[in-house]
Design a protein around this nucleic acid. Structure first.
Length: 463
RNA sequence: GCUCCCUUCGUCUAGUGGUAAGGACGCUGCCCUCUCAAGGCGGAAACAGGGGUUCAACUCCCCUAGGGAGCGCCA
């Protein structure tokens, strides 16, 4: 049984890099009919917060990356870690170290001065009698030979044991460290495939030593290349390293986020747009790319647009109503919003854009863009608009008959459809962009449309 | 500083010794058209550099450069 896990540390929010890792873990598990688990790595008391946990959980929920078991919180498993540490001391794979911070600093300074690698020199290995009740537990790392990390993606990577030092397993405050708990928990949780960022590739050497010390079987390791900012540097706040929920606020669809992210490092032929179902069906570990990818907002926007235009009008209207209430915007009935969605969905990149158009069109304090008015509401169009008003008053409010009314007016004044289309559009929508004008008009109530036309005529008369 | 990893159009990628180096985003030309999109059909655009190996290298090896990562009582 394939069991994967996503193990974020709650020291901040969930960002794109984390989501991509979680996604690959989740997809692989689902593809293999296995299980995906969530583990909160909150062993750093200083930096872990409840808010971070909450926001990470919300992000995962928004993306529908569900854990198949209750999330594991490392802070609640202290007994296990303590017991495992004792086991290692017992078997002589770990020892207590009484060095003070000052001593360690001193040691490192000397090493750096001599051009050596900063590493703990293992001086407490020999200490047999307790020196104080302040100590850390260190792993007795092999100081000869090398470790072979067999990574599914990167292949065999050899690490010289001399580069590794006796790293800390249990801090002086009794809390275990990452390298220790990751091994204990991955084994305890029966994780078959460890899928994580390649910033952990070299760390895996330490983990392998620990697995060996415990006599545990090694899981499969799959390290994923990192996602870089758009300028190729480490992902930071400036780039895509925002809270994933920020993308929700900006009107991105969760399935679009996932679709975009999956293509960073994975491909399936020439296919770009996938449904979640297709992703689960096609995802594998053999079509992974080894090089890091840059985050590209424009491609994300395109992917989002693709997913929006594939969404049903019912679903779109629902999402719009929801987003509107979050932004405190009043919208007409959900039925109306369905027609609106149909008309506008190919014109937007995000739900937020859609909402913006809806707000402009339906807002109680409707305003006509000044520049658009100046350019399109000219006296030459006054008469045709007046005729149109009279015609509209007796026209059935459907796109075909509306179109006919406009055509008739054009014929009467011997002008092209385009001559009246834009002024009409500006008068009724306030802007120069909208779906075909006859369809747009049906979205606005007949009376309201006529009212807006009349005030446009008034504007022309007064300019 | 030491060590490890990576390197195909601007970006995401396909490619696994013999290809006119394919697709997608973006850019761009045309078509469609009442605006803006969407859509359709085109275009420009890449094998980081240098050495090898080979009849033949984007594909294999080495070096250089650039980028990323690890070297914590962070994860």
């Amino acid at each position: 049984m394939v069991r994967t896990r996503f193990a974020p540390s709650p020291t901040g929010y969930l960002h794109i890099g984390g989501v991509r890792t979680a996604l690959f873990c989740w997809l692989y598990a689902k593809n293999q009919k296995g299980q995906f688990l969530l583990r909160i790595e909150d062993t750093d008391q200083e930096r872990s917060t409840q808010e971070s946990i909450a926001t990470i959980l919300q992000g995962m929920e928004w993306l529908s990356l569900k854990s198949d078991e209750e999330p594991v919180y490392q802070s609640q498993r202290m007994d296990l870690y303590q017991q495992k540490a004792d086991e290692l001391i017992e078997s002589n794979f770990a020892y207590k170290c009484y060095c003070t911070q000052a001593e360690l600093d001193e040691m490192r300074r000397g090493q750096v001065e001599r051009g050596e690698n900063p590493r703990y020199d293992g001086r407490c290995r020999k200490v047999k009698e307790p020196k104080s009740d302040q100590f850390v537990v260190r792993f007795k790392s092999p100081d000869k030979g090398e470790v072979k990390i067999s990574d599914h993606l990167f292949g065999d990577v050899l690490v010289n044991n001399q580069e590794l030092d006796d790293f800390v397993l249990i801090r002086s405050n009794g809390m275990p460290t990452y390298h220790f708990v990751v091994v204990v928990d991955d084994h305890d949780m029966d994780i078959s495939h460890v899928i994580r960022g390649d910033d952990h590739l070299k760390n895996t050497a330490k983990h392998i030593h620990l697995f060996n010390a415990f006599g545990y079987q090694l899981p499969k390791f799959i390290h994923l290349p990192m996602i870089l900012g758009s300028d190729g540097s480490r992902l930071s706040k400036r780039h895509g390293a925002m809270d994933i929920l920020e993308y929700k606020r900006q009107g991105f669809l969760p399935e679009a986020m996932l679709n975009y992210l999956v293509r960073l490092g994975w491909s399936s032929g020439d296919q770009e747009i996938f449904t979640i179902g297709e992703l689960i069906e096609h995802f594998d570990l053999t079509n992974l790319n080894k090089s890091s990818a840059r985050f590209d907002l424009e491609k994300l926007q395109w992917v989002n647009q693709q997913h929006i235009s594939k969404l049903s009008n019912t679903k779109l209207a629902e999402l719009l109503m929801q987003l509107a209430s979050e932004h405190n915007i009043q919208l007409p009935s959900i039925e109306k919003m369905q027609s609106f969605s149909e008309a506008y969905k190919s014109r937007v990149v995000s739900l937020k854009d859609l909402l913006t158009y809806a707000d402009k069109l339906f807002s109680d304090n409707f305003i006509v863009d000044a520049e658009a008015a100046k350019k399109h509401l000219k006296s030459s169009i006054e008469e045709p608009l007046k005729d149109l008003v009279s015609l509209f008053e007796v026209t059935t409010w459907e796109s075909a008959s509306i179109h006919e009314a406009i055509d008739d007016t054009c014929k009467k004044h011997n002008i092209g459809f385009g001559k009246i289309g834009q002024p009409l559009r500006v008068a009724v929508t306030g802007i120069t962009i909208s779906p075909p004008i006859d369809i747009t008009l049906t979205l606005v109530e007949k009376e309201l449309a006529i009212q807006r036309l009349k005030s446009a005529i008034e504007y022309i008369e007064n300019r």
